[in-house]
């Protein structure tokens, strides 16, 4: 089980969290302006890297807030986490 560094509450066990998928994917400001390729890519294509991954978590059984984190998908070790709206460290 992961020990996840919530930037609001500190390190907590994984069971308190919900995974929020890849981070940094902004919803297009004007979806109607996109062609099908771009909209499909926004909805479904993911980096899925073997290595460092920027992702979102939500501390559902704690503060309830979303935040961002960077984790190595091979070792599962967290490098850092940061609050929504802050720049990535």
């Amino acid at each position: 089980m992961l020990l996840i560094p919530c930037p609001y509450c500190g390190p907590r066990p994984e069971l308190e969290f919900a995974y929020g998928g890849e981070g940094g994917i902004a919803r297009p400001a004007d979806p109607a302006a996109l062609d099908d390729d771009a909209w499909g890519a926004f909805l479904y294509h993911r980096s899925n890297p073997r290595g460092m991954h920027v992702e979102r978590w939500r501390h559902v059984h704690g503060c309830g807030r979303f935040f961002n984190a960077r984790r190595d998908t091979v070792t599962d070790l967290f490098a850092c986490s940061w609050k929504v709206g802050e720049a990535a460290p």
Partner: peptide
């Protein structure tokens, strides 16, 4: 597991 990973092991829970 709930999160993407290439670790080839899963969590005990």
């Amino acid at each position: 597991d709930a999160y993407i990973s290439y670790s080839q092991r899963g969590a005990l829970h």
